[in-house]
Amino acid sequence: MNMSINEIENEIVEEFEMFDNWIDKYEYLIDLGKSLPKISDSEKTKENIITGCQSQVWLNAKEKDRHIIFYADSDAIMTKGIIAILIRVLSFQKPKDIINAKLEFIEKIGLKEQLSPTRANGLVSMIKKMKIYALGFEQKL
């Protein structure tokens, strides 16, 4: 049985509570970004690119056993680190749960500013797109 979105969020919040300074937190994000599997160049198509003014994001999704698996990549490592966290929360979940996810943990781990639309790093649009995928899959099911 998979962990629920809520359970994973709580786990991440606990992990981030260990950091008492921004440097450690950012280094952790950078490590997460580096260890996120890359999307191959051939899969980085016009259809799955999200162009932010600052960094670009590529997002793919597929369905397996009524759950959605997300793959994403970015040219900026900080953006990738946050993508890794979002994938950990939203991948292998049911479409309905993805659509309803509020993702409030982002604020609790102190990364809200990274998800501000003014950052123009593509992350806000990425979350929107993940939910749109989920909506599409749900309608098919």
Partner: peptide, 22 residues
């Protein structure tokens, strides 16, 4: 090996305002 956005974000944490992008 470093994306300009990452550099800008980390410099900002250290109080340094630079511009990144095109």
């Amino acid at each position: 090996g470093i994306h300009h956005y990452d550099l800008g974000v980390i410099l900002d944490k250290m109080g340094i305002a630079i511009r990144t992008g095109h």
